[in-house]
């Protein structure tokens, strides 16, 4: 290490910010070079003079209070601003509108058009969402029932593959007599039946099996004009298939694939007596 290098690294050395190897090299040089050693000592006492001599400006107590109260004002202001923002934003906007759209007639027209536009969209959305909204809510209930039946070791209240056991049991518990058929020969053996509560009423749940997968078929009386087109919903990996005849609502819920569920529906319909 030469004097120039030593001089350049002096501050880092004094501040103990150098790596050990460089430190050693500097120490070696300082032992060898009187000039640099003197400069180092002078620099060291200057550093100490700054450290000890420069006044440290502590914050006055009143500054702390000022800051604390300004922070409290800030959070007190925030929600108020949210509420009052809308009118102030609103009153600020027309100015902007005027400058951009060159005169009021334009902005008035656009305004009216926008209202009509918004109304059309809202109307469309509302009418489209109205019915599926009910179905979606029901679908959530159905999936929950299905999942719970598999989870809580409560798949069936009456475990039997004999439709003549399941049906009478359900008939005594419900105020309606759901159709019960065994579909073993079609690949959907009947496992049993269960009571459940859906759509604000007690319902029958018929449990079928398809290659280790279970199908819950929920059945309850249809309201008068409920004969609707079959409907499928896929959600969270579950298939839901809905159909209705003149007497009953049917909702089949399972994790089998959609085709299997369609087959199930067809088999079930062909085997149930027509009304």
């Amino acid at each position: 290490m030469n004097c120039e290098q030593c001089k350049n690294l002096m501050d880092g050395y004094l501040d103990r910010e150098l790596d050990p190897i460089t430190n050693q090299k500097i120490e070696q040089h300082l032992r060898d070079c009187r000039n640099c050693d003197q400069a180092y000592k002078a620099h060291g006492s200057l550093v100490r003079a700054i450290r000890d001599g420069a006044p440290y400006y502590k914050a006055p107590a009143k500054l702390r209070e000022r800051i604390q109260s300004s922070l409290r004002q800030e959070i007190a202001k925030k929600p108020v601003r949210n509420v009052e923002d809308s009118p102030s934003l609103f009153s600020a906007r027309p100015r902007w509108t005027r400058t951009v759209s060159f005169g009021t007639p334009w902005s008035g027209l656009a305004f009216a058009a926008a209202i009509v536009f918004a109304a059309i969209i809202t109307f469309n959305l509302m009418s489209r969402l109205q019915r599926p909204g009910n179905d979606q809510f029901l679908a959530t209930q159905l999936i929950a029932s299905h999942a719970r039946s598999l989870m809580a070791n409560h798949l069936t209240d009456v475990a039997s593959s004999d439709q003549h056991t399941v049906k009478p049991w359900l008939d005594t518990k419900l105020d309606f007599a759901p159709p019960v058929v065994d579909l073993s020969s079609e690949g959907f053996p009947l496992i049993g039946g269960r009571l459940d509560y859906l759509d604000n009423r007690p319902v029958a749940a018929l449990v079928y099996e398809r290659r280790k997968h279970f199908i819950n078929l929920f059945v309850w009386p249809a309201s008068s004009d409920a004969a609707t087109a079959p409907k499928t919903i896929t959600r969270q990996g579950y298939q839901l298939l809905h159909w209705a005849d003149s007497d009953f609502n049917y909702w089949a819920v399972s994790d089998v694939n959609a085709n299997d569920l369609q087959t199930f529906k067809q088999q079930f319909e062909t085997r149930t007596p027509h009304h």
Binding site: A39, A42, A49, D52, G53, A54, P55
Partner: peptide
């Protein structure tokens, strides 16, 4: 010019000077 460290530190108004 090298100021002798002693010169700085000996002064009673050291802090004032540094500031």
């Amino acid at each position: 010019e090298v100021v002798s460290p002693v010169t700085i530190l000996e002064r009673s108004d050291n802090a004032e000077l540094i500031k």
